[in-house]
């Protein structure tokens, strides 16, 4: 479980949000499996050197988003999810990253055509993504 969750204390993004995003990413990439137990609030606060209130807020937020669930007196666990939910979550993550790329492309004044070419080229060069399965 160690070093899976990281926070950047110099980032303007609220720390509880960083924790939520880190856990979601770990779930998405399969680092956290279904029904896996998360560290207690105290343990994670000490590990990340953050206020326990902040960790508690992150856990509440993740429970509201159904990323985790609580077993009474035993702590927080990763919610199991269907393949469909996983794909949806993955698509949301990629869309988010595309928006960032588009913002940068816009400020660099790159055309959409050029951007499409660049994306195809990058996919061609990527070892695991170059061959599209039929």
């Amino acid at each position: 479980m160690r070093r899976v969750i990281r926070v950047d204390e110099s980032s303007p993004v609220p720390i509880y949000q960083q924790i939520v995003e880190e856990v979601k990413r770990a779930v998405l990439t399969g680092v956290f499996g279904p029904d896996q137990r998360l560290p207690s609030i105290r343990e994670l606060a000490l590990e990340l050197k953050v206020n326990p209130n902040t960790v508690a807020k992150a856990y509440q937020e993740m429970e509201a988003q159904r990323v985790i669930y609580f077993r009474r007196g035993q702590g927080a666990y990763i919610s199991p999810r269907s393949e469909e939910e996983r794909v949806q979550e993955a698509q949301r993550e990629i869309s988010r990253l595309f928006r960032q790329v588009l913002d940068i492309a816009h400020s660099l004044r790159l055309s959409r055509t050029r951007l499409n070419d660049l994306f195809r080229q990058a996919a061609q060069e990527h070892p695991d993504m170059k061959e599209e399965k039929p």
């Binding site: 609030i41 105290r42 606060a45 000490l46 050197k49 953050v50 206020n51 326990p52 209130n53």
Partner: peptide, 12 residues
């Protein structure tokens, strides 16, 4: 770090 950990532990 030790002082911060002690403060965080007290808070928790």
């Amino acid at each position: 770090d030790q002082i911060r950990d002690t403060i965080i532990g007290t808070l928790a």
